[in-house]
């Protein structure tokens, strides 16, 4: 049971973003810029950063949602799984490994990011903008994970829910859907009921 009264058909972050839309707006905009805006990192790479941080924060909802998005964008599900298990040995570029190492340090605390970690990323070809965005994506997902778990939001356990959510954030991005959440609530209702 969530600690505050939220729409029961909007699990995880979705209910929170509908609960207070004036705070949700800048959070959504920031996410849209960082994960879907112009960047020399692919959308799949950026979702991998979000997934790794969420997984280190043990936030089940965010980990499952961004894993689903990363899988769709990468066209396969092996890479994201291996990144969560051991990114240093995952089939990704040396630059991505160095950026994920920075993200993992940010997850612990900003002060833990070392000169060596930054140098490694730069030597692997990371630009200042890529390093900046990696740090800010990692920091933003610490916000999300703490927000979602700190208010004990509902975490569905059926994979189909996250497949649908993954499709939605890949196809529509992070802005609030123009037509609101009525359709999504109906969809969620049947998805959530189908397992209980």
């Amino acid at each position: 049971m969530p600690y505050i009264s939220l729409d029961e058909h909007l699990p995880g972050i979705t209910g929170l973003l509908e609960y207070r839309q004036d705070t949700a707006k800048p959070i959504r905009e920031l996410t849209q810029i960082l994960l879907r805006g112009d960047s020399t990192l692919t959308q799949g790479e950026r979702e991998l950063i979000a997934t790794l941080v969420s997984s280190k924060n043990q936030c089940k909802f965010c980990t499952a949602a961004h894993t689903a998005a990363a899988d769709l964008l990468l066209g396969e599900s092996e890479t994201c799984e291996l990144v969560k298990q051991d990114y240093e040995n995952a089939p990704i570029s040396a630059k991505m490994k160095a950026l994920l190492a920075i993200a993992a340090l940010v997850q612990q605390n900003g002060k833990n990011v070392t000169f060596e970690a930054i140098t490694r990323a730069k030597e692997a070809g990371a630009t200042d903008m890529e390093i900046h965005d990696t740090v800010l994506i990692a920091a933003l997902f610490c916000l999300y994970n703490k927000y979602v778990d700190g208010l004990a939001t509902f975490t569905p356990s059926n994979p189909e829910f996250y497949e649908k959510l993954g499709e939605r954030i890949v196809n529509l991005g992070y802005n609030r859907p123009k037509y609101g959440f009525d359709e999504i609530k109906k969809q969620n209702e049947s998805l959530i009921q189908s397992i209980s």
Binding site: N109, G110, V113, V135, A139
Partner: peptide, 8 residues
């Protein structure tokens, strides 16, 4: 915010 400021 803290991670952003200190992480860079």
């Amino acid at each position: 915010f803290n991670r952003y400021v200190d992480g860079l």
